[in-house]
Amino acid sequence: MDKIAGLAAAAELFKVLGNESRLALVWLLSTGPLTVGALADKAGLSQPLVSQHLRTLRHAGLVTSEREGKEIRYALADQHVAHVVLDAIAHVQEPNEQGNQQ
Results as ranks from 00 to 15, higher is better:
59 H>W: 06
47 Q>D: 12
81 V>I: 15
6 G>C: 01
92 V>S: 10
96 N>A: 09
17 L>T: 01
54 L>H: 00
83 H>T: 09
47 Q>C: 13
35 T>H: 07
102 Q>F: 06
47 Q>M: 15
96 N>Y: 04
34 L>N: 11
5 A>Y: 07
80 H>F: 12
19 N>F: 07
79 Q>N: 07
70 K>R: 15
2 D>T: 05
4 I>L: 14
60 A>K: 02
29 L>R: 09
72 I>P: 00
95 P>I: 08
25 L>R: 11
50 V>D: 08
40 A>F: 10
50 V>N: 05
101 Q>A: 14
13 L>Y: 07
64 T>A: 13
64 T>W: 01
53 H>E: 12
30 S>M: 13
5 A>N: 11
21 S>H: 11
20 E>K: 07
93 Q>T: 05
58 R>Y: 08
101 Q>E: 07
38 A>T: 13
33 P>W: 02
18 G>M: 08
92 V>F: 12
20 E>C: 02
80 H>G: 09
55 R>K: 14
84 V>I: 15
88 A>M: 15
54 L>S: 02
71 E>I: 01
85 V>P: 07
54 L>Y: 01
18 G>K: 11
97 E>P: 05
12 E>M: 14
63 V>W: 10
4 I>T: 06
10 A>R: 12
77 A>K: 14
77 A>S: 12
64 T>L: 11
3 K>L: 04
21 S>T: 03
89 I>D: 11
84 V>F: 13
50 V>T: 04
33 P>G: 01
50 V>P: 06
43 A>M: 03
73 R>S: 03
8 A>W: 04
10 A>V: 10
57 L>Y: 04
53 H>A: 01
81 V>C: 06
9 A>L: 04
27 W>C: 12
23 L>H: 00
78 D>T: 07
39 L>N: 09
3 K>S: 03
82 A>K: 03
91 H>L: 14
19 N>E: 12
41 D>F: 08
61 G>L: 06
84 V>W: 09
85 V>L: 07
101 Q>G: 12
85 V>E: 08
56 T>G: 03
98 Q>V: 14
82 A>W: 03
3 K>C: 00
79 Q>P: 00
58 R>F: 03
46 S>F: 02
49 L>F: 10
63 V>Q: 05
101 Q>N: 08
2 D>I: 02
7 L>T: 00
82 A>H: 01
8 A>I: 09
6 G>F: 02
22 R>E: 00
42 K>M: 05
79 Q>L: 05
88 A>I: 08
94 E>D: 10
90 A>Q: 12
17 L>F: 09
96 N>M: 06
29 L>I: 02
92 V>P: 07
59 H>E: 15
85 V>G: 15
86 L>E: 14
74 Y>F: 15
13 L>V: 05
69 G>H: 07
38 A>M: 08
94 E>L: 10
29 L>G: 12
19 N>W: 03
31 T>A: 15
89 I>P: 08
98 Q>P: 05
39 L>G: 09
75 A>F: 02
49 L>S: 13
11 A>R: 10
94 E>A: 10
75 A>W: 01
14 F>R: 14
68 E>G: 08
48 P>T: 13
96 N>E: 08
20 E>H: 09
98 Q>K: 11
50 V>E: 03
29 L>Y: 06
